[in-house]
Computed example of a mutant assay.
Amino acid sequence: MSTELPDATVSPPTEPPLTPSRRTFIATTTVAGGAVVAGSLFMAPDALGDEPANTAEAPSGRVSLTVNGERHTVTVDNRTSLLDLLREHLKLTGSKKGCNAGACGACTVLVDGRRVNSCLTLAVRLEGAEVTTIEGLADGDDLHKLQQAFIDEDAFQCGFCTPGQIMSGVGCIKEGHTGSVEEIREWMSGNICRCGCYVKIVRAVGHAAHGK
């Protein structure tokens, strides 16, 4: 009689579940995320909560004014500045857009004989006004005395600020603020020259005012 015991039936060890690799995880989440984004891109605007764009036109107004002796009647957006009216509508580009905030004086023109920063002046408020720009100073081929003084004194370099400097200088002379170099400097201080020609500019204004 055999005394050997039968072999025990042993179940094979159970393998732990496979853990997804980092690469598999990233690939899976990227695909899923892309599907979500793609789906949102093709959703109807109403589903995204978008409102239709406002297509209403900005209010406009009509203004009649005289520029350099010529009468103009134009219809413009109520927010249009005198500077943009001159440059964009009347093609008078002598007045320069420097800071567009009233700080540099490059856009200076005369309105009813008084100097103003045209970038800060609304065009629709100038009904019936008389506007003079740098283009309107000369009499044909005869330059205004201040234009000639700027040439004689070499009072410019790049020339960008020159139209505003001259228009401000004309206003300064009309206002009678040319009693001294210090007074001219004070009343011309709203006009910036980045080239630094202030000494010659002041000299030119004084020359035009007093003929010396």
Rank of each mutant, 00 (worst) to 15 (best):
G179C: 03
A58P: 12
V124E: 10
R115Q: 10
L86M: 04
V109A: 07
P13T: 03
S64C: 04
V37F: 10
L146R: 07
P52I: 11
H72M: 11
T178Y: 04
S40R: 05
T178D: 05
T28R: 13
C107R: 07
V31Q: 05
G113I: 10
A155K: 05
V181D: 12
R23L: 09
R23Q: 10
K212T: 00
H72G: 08
Q148M: 08
G34M: 15
E183G: 00
V67R: 03
T28V: 15
N191Q: 09
Q147M: 02
A155L: 04
S60N: 13
E70Q: 14
R185L: 00
E183D: 06
G105S: 05
A204L: 03
C119N: 06
P13E: 07
Q147H: 09
E182N: 09
V199W: 12
V170I: 08
S189C: 14
L18I: 15
L137P: 02
N68K: 08
K174F: 08
E70D: 13
V199Q: 11
H210E: 13
T133L: 09
V31G: 11
A103F: 00
K200N: 14
G94P: 01
G98W: 01
P59A: 13
L126P: 01
E153G: 04
T73V: 07
N78S: 15
D7L: 11
D141E: 15
F25N: 00
S180M: 07
T121D: 05
R115G: 10
H144E: 05
G196F: 10
D112C: 09
V205W: 01
K212Q: 08
L122Q: 09
A32G: 15
C99Q: 05
C104L: 10
L82F: 02
P6C: 01
G61F: 11
D112I: 06
S64G: 12
N100P: 01
M188H: 07
S40G: 14
Q165L: 14
E15T: 09
R185A: 10
G105R: 02
K96H: 13
T93R: 06
V109E: 03
N191A: 11
G69P: 06
H177W: 11
L146A: 09
A209Q: 02
C119H: 08
D46A: 12
P16D: 08
S81C: 01
V10F: 01
G206E: 02
D142Y: 04
K97V: 00
R87Y: 06
D50F: 15
D142A: 07
D154I: 10
K200F: 06
G190N: 11
E51R: 15
C107S: 11
V205D: 01
F150C: 01
H89Q: 13
